[in-house]
Design a protein around this nucleic acid. Structure first.
Lengths: 364, 364
DNA sequence: GTGAAAGCGCTAACAC
DNA sequence: GTGTTAGCGCTTTCAC
């Protein structure tokens, strides 16, 4: 019997003499308390212990409770590595993000984390650091690593990367990005509608020259927001003027320079709608840098409602995306895939909502 | 020979027929390419493959390169679970944080993440969600889980928790918190000096009634900052007035109410120094809510220099903590423990620096 | 209902 | 220099 090798026995003895009962009661981690130690103490085979620990049905109640009690007493903690190696679940899911430096990402991550915690899963955070070439490496590492599933919060996942995940049948869900092929679960928001709402808000305030600071055009949310803006304009009978849309990149700096461009137009806008809050901050800064006031001279609207949006001065009027909710929903979708493999892939679209704060003014 | 069991053979055959060479070249993850597959293809034993993969010395060059080439061709990726189970390293370290909702934490996390990425480690993120009772659970999960070491970014780690870590000899480092017992590695900053600098800055601007919005007093950085403030005042020959320090909690709301209190004093301050940026934001909001202007009527100084501090209006003058650097250094200290166990525990103190922006004005 | 045995993929003695 | 042999701690058939 493999487990009664002399090495084992020695270990057990050493432990027996060095670990007092009070140590155990105090929660001291006896590093080497294994399923086998529990089985011996409970007088059953270790496969029975495994059954009990995994909530298996066909175990006599008395056995079950005894095993549970002994495990508790010994301070047994399952070794996740062994468990997952043996085919069990690791209860770890991975979250792939480009960077960690903005409220948009950390709010979503927060939702992910909360939902995961509730479900007893741990979180591996994979950061690509915006380096394209490392992503393939991640694909490998992740699929053969310890995560059971993957949440992708990366703008524009390379198609072949997604292919890999699918080919592997590796559970995953895309957050805030479209899946052209429609073969992956996704969580998105009503980007078009949100942009439409924001534009209409500005329109209702009397603005007619409304500029748009776009996001990176290769990202679907950026395109949809532009669409929403154009649509609202069209409905109001206002001709779309290309010069009023300046290309940004979803970053503060991009917002700043785009706004500067807009502001130097011979007929500058009276309102600027930025594709996300980060760029709206840049816009606000640019507006002030040319000596204009918000909202008196220029109105500004953002998109996302990241936490910072409510502490700017003036507080930013913006289209709220339910960021943490997106994270939570993504987890739900992923867990569904994990628990019932092969079932229909689900995708959900969450509603955006205009949050009217202080950065917009009426025009006479 | 265990590995030539019929099951194995069948697997190999199936793989052989379903995975084309182009699949492999395209980086398709052949989920079950193991060290054993590589060994067969390379015509060596699998321990040799292991040696090569782990950079062992005593391997013939020709063998080494052949193994490497074959591994590459087959798209071999090490299985971390197996590797760490077998006594190898998991190359995962854990970061324990209270929550994920503020720039202070995410900036440090960013530093951690960057440093880890450079060293080829992965990051497990453990969030306590400010629930005290779960922390013991974390201790267990972490020590018997897959992290090789732990970074603690939690304010006020329960002493017995730290004891646990030490008893286990589990590599760990504390970020931004004192270790009374001095038995754990730590990364801190010059809190006292930073607060001293901030106060002196205000003093040099002519302020005499300088208020302080404190942080949670049970946290050592909070106490040190208060000390620095008092010290600077004393050096300037200004008597310390208890009514000028209002208790905050390092959160925006706490800062707001503390400021409101201060502002309603019969002799209100002309400057408010907040123990961190988050509370400074609350202070700014409170100041404006009573109709006062920053910096014309009231000067405000923060502490931390989280990213948001530079996008407020006016931009916040604050004491910069090298947040991402703290994260990076913490990783360095942890890796040192990992690589040379038993060596002296190191602790480092990083310098703070006053960042003079727009929220302070001179007094006549 | 419970035990025995095999094996997950790998590292690490120990041989030769 | 390289192969053989044991496990790491667990899940999972397969018996009984």
């Amino acid at each position: 019997m493999r487990h009664s090798s002399s090495k084992r026995q020695k270990d057990a003895n050493v432990r027996g003499t060095t670990t007092s009962e009070s140590d155990l009661l105090n929660g001291r981690i006896a590093k080497s308390v294994t399923i086998y130690d529990v089985s011996r103490a409970a007088g059953v085979s270790y496969s029975t212990v495994s059954r009990v620990l995994n909530g298996f049905e066909h175990v006599k109640d008395s056995t079950r409770s005894r095993v549970l009690r002994v495990a508790e007493e010994l301070g047994y903690v399952a070794n996740q590595k062994a468990r997952s190696l043996a085919g069990g679940k690791s209860r770890v899911i991975g979250l792939l993000v480009p960077v960690l430096d903005n409220g948009y990402i950390s709010e979503i991550a927060r939702g992910v984390d909360e939902a995961l915690a509730r479900s007893g899963y741990d979180l591996m955070l994979y950061t690509t650091h915006r380096v394209k070439s490392t992503e393939m490496m991640y694909a490998k590492a992740i699929a053969s690593g310890l995560s059971e599933g993957l949440l992708l919060l990366v703008p524009k996942v390379p198609a072949h990367y997604l292919e890999l995940l699918r080919a592997q049948n590796f559970p995953h869900v895309l957050i805030d990005q479209q899946d052209e092929a429609n073969r992956s679960a996704t969580v998105e928001t009503t980007n078009r509608q949100g942009a439409h709402d924001a534009t209409r808000h500005l329109l209702s305030l009397g603005h007619r020259r409304i500029a748009f600071v776009s996001g990176s055009p290769e990202l679907s949310p950026a395109r949809e927001r532009l669409d929403g803006y154009r649509k609202a304009l069209g409905e109001a009978g206002i001709a779309f003027e290309p010069e009023l849309v300046a290309e940004g990149d979803f970053q503060t700096e991009g917002g700043r320079s785009a706004a500067l461009e807009l502001l130097s137009l011979r007929k500058p806008p009276s309102a600027i709608f930025a594709a996300n809050d980060l760029s709206a901050f840049g816009v606000m800064d640019a507006v002030r840098s040319v000596g204009l006031a918000i909202p008196d001279d220029i109105s500004v609207v953002g998109f996302d409602d990241i936490p910072q949006a409510s502490i700017t001065y003036p507080k930013l009027t913006t289209v709220r995306q339910p960021l943490t909710e997106m994270g939570r929903v993504a987890v739900t979708l992923l867990l569904e895939q994990l628990h019932s493999p092969g079932s229909e892939l689900e995708s959900v679209v969450l509603k955006t909502e205009l949050v009217n704060r202080e950065s917009c003014g009426a025009i006479d």
